[in-house]
Amino acid sequence: MNMTDELYQEVILDHNRHARNYHAMTDATHTAEGYNPLCGDHYQVHLKLNDQGVIESLAFEGEGCAISKASLSIMTDALKGKTADEAKALFEAFHDLVTGQAPSKDSDKSLGKLAVFGGVCKFPSRIKCATLGWHALMGALNQSQGRVSTE
């Protein structure tokens, strides 16, 4: 596989073309914005957290490159039904993956579909694209209510 094929895997291209959970959410408990001023990628991430601390549903809106959009699409799928702590742990594993840190044994398994972003670490200028939505999500989870902006 050449370098770009490794980055733009079919799964990523598919999620870019047909993003999942790509809509507004009227009953969101948390919403945050992800903005990368360098390339203009700009998203809103919405989620609904129930009383047990479980993420019941997620959605996102906005525009950006294929990597950021596919990352949000797959992330919003992957986190449904997870607790906030589980989401944080998954972000750490994902962050290690895209920045090229050696994965710990069990994080490899837990990543599931997110593993398609393994090619990103060879494109240092694109790591921010892959993590943009995650940073926004972490911002949303860390706030009690309202909006935060992440870079």
Binding site: N2, M3, T4, L7, Y8, R17, L38, C39, G40, D41, G64, C65, A66, I67, F123, S125, R126, C129
Partner: peptide, 23 residues
Amino acid sequence: DGAHPHDIGTILDSLGVAIRAGH
């Protein structure tokens, strides 16, 4: 259409073509 400038820049770079993508 369908391809963000950032993605265009990355693919061109992977083929040795250096351009700028951004604002």
